[in-house]
Design a binder for these strands. Structure first.
Lengths: 173, 173
DNA sequence: ATATTATTGAGAATGATACTCAATTACATC
DNA sequence: GATGTAATTGAGTATCATTCTCAATAATAT
């Protein structure tokens, strides 16, 4: 999957990239799509359809929710955003164009999301794909648990540095 | 998170484990809950609420969908099942009690799910948690892409063994 | 300028999941 | 075993994100 697009020596902007993608597919670059792109780049890390809608209202744009939902698959196909996390039945997206890939730690108590990057994950992916003759387009590593603050609040012991006390029980399959 | 429960030298069955969990919480072990457990253990790898419902009908049980939805969180809290994948707006679950943890390769063309286990993922998790002072309860690594069959069908090149041709472009943040 | 085809907004439809409430039942205690 | 209490159930309704429908409009190629 090619995520970066260049003309001359310059990386295309979100808007230009989207325009180009639409042209490739014989789709139209409408004012609504332009305004959606303008909204997307202003949004915080993780957002859902409703957030795009709100940002558009802020910009005095009247694009309908229906159009937003119709545009999201185009944004995904053009490599500008991806679906990241499912948070309480909501699908969250984030911009990926010209961003380094990262994974997530999600606190199951307060909902905080910590982003991290670890090159080993990519290596692991390559290794696993080789083994299963799989061609990966994307991976997602999500670690759920408790963040530092919530550990303190809930009095949860952090035994990261201690040896784990594993029970010696055989597993199925 | 303790996933295995033992009495004497014997690992509790799904049913006993659930009974025990309910008791701990002062909840009742009803015929409906018993039948749901009986259904769960008969289901294939990945299932949704509807699959439980169908299995119950097969067993001549009339448990309502409402009760199934109400029971799922209990099954999760008791460590018998977890949410795994979100597949076309449906939440899929799988049994984890007395199972070795595994991760998934998901074919975005045919929907096939390949399970794999790789100990490095656990090590990575420990390392990342140490770094971010996070206490993990669960992780999930999902790799999306194309399975061997679909690669052939769609004529997608598998360059797993070749060096990747990365563009030298700087990324944001 | 015209023809073609994609796109839009509005509102209705869908579909998974959650809620409401009255009737029922499990279980601890006597 | 009878009793009281709180949990549980089914049925139907509500919710809410997302998708669909359709007639009106607009973007682009020619």
């Amino acid at each position: 999957m090619i995520l970066n697009y260049i003309r001359g020596n310059v990386l295309l902007s979100y808007k230009e990239r989207f325009k180009y993608f639409l042209k490739e597919r014989n789709l139209k670059y409408t004012p609504e799509r332009k305004e959606i792109i303008e909204a997307i780049v202003k949004l915080q890390k993780h957002f859902d359809a409703e957030d795009i809608y709100k940002q558009l209202r802020k910009q005095k744009s009247n694009v309908s929710l229906a159009t937003i939902y119709r545009t999201i698959p185009l944004l995904i196909d053009s490599g500008l955003i991806i679906e990241t996390l499912h948070c309480r039945d909501k699908v969250l997206y984030e911009r990926i164009y010209n961003k380094k890939h990262h994974d997530h730690l999600v606190c199951i108590n307060c909902g905080k999301i910590i982003e991290f990057y670890n090159g080993e994950v990519e290596k692991l992916q390559d290794e696993i794909c080789r083994k299963y003759q799989f061609v990966a387009t994307e991976h997602r590593l999500g670690i759920k648990g408790y963040c530092k603050e919530c550990q303190d609040k809930l009095n949860i012991k952090n035994n990261n540095s201690k040896e784990k006390n594993k029970r010696d029980i055989k597993h199925d399959s």
